[in-house]
Amino acid sequence: MKGSAGRHGKWLAATLFVALMSMPAVAADYVDVPAGAFQSVLPTADTPLDVSVAALAMRSEPVTNAEFLAFISAHPEWRRDQVPRLFAESRYLEHWPTANSIDAGQARQPVVKVSWFAAQAFCESEQARLPTWHEWEYVAAADATRRDARADPAWRNRILGWYERTSGGDLAQIGGDANAYGVRDLHGLVWEWVDDFNALFISADNRNQGDPDLLKFCGAGALSMQDRDNYAVLMRIAMLSSLKGADVTGNLGFRCVRPATEKSQ
């Protein structure tokens, strides 16, 4: 019991210090995205292409290594040395120096090498979820001033330029230019998980015929997509549709969304 007041003080200080340190992880910045309709490159069967998206709030930036570290500290079952293999393959978070630490230079980089299950769990821990493909595509159609810039060849070429760069080397930090909604880094930094990644097979209707193997090769079905000029978005779909929920890759991260019921804090 001796010296308990002093210990108490240190305790408080430590708590306060950590509380301040972890503020960014807790108070993630979500920006409101109004409802709207747009033409998706991914047709839903033989119906018109207009896809409606309900109002939502989206994380303005991808989830960072520092934010993911705060998450696994609170939910150690998602540490790379504790997660069941069912939910994350062996390369999960392998770029971290240890299971519960990151290098200083990684703090503001987007977290990559995370599985779909881990991304879902992170979003659930802040009362959010992964965006659906259509939600992601809708917000990612914007440039700095227009909500749908996809018809502009200059915009398309800028995005394609990113895909042409070789991957490898260090990831940049989050904080690119905001688009018309105030959302950053949808293009040019990492690819992102979506909630319905396992809905993105291309074949229009396979209920009663066809080779089931076609499901696995989106290249084979790519010609049935509606906007063949939008290669950048098609590549995302091709990549996502080839993944399993426990897979990780070195350039695949995520962000979360919430229903836009109230102003996010």
């Binding site: 609170a74 069941p84 769990a121």
Partner: peptide
């Protein structure tokens, strides 16, 4: 602190 700040654990694992 992390315990306090943490939201309900995701019901996955």
């Amino acid at each position: 602190c992390l315990g306090i700040l943490a939201n309900p654990a995701p019901a996955l694992a």
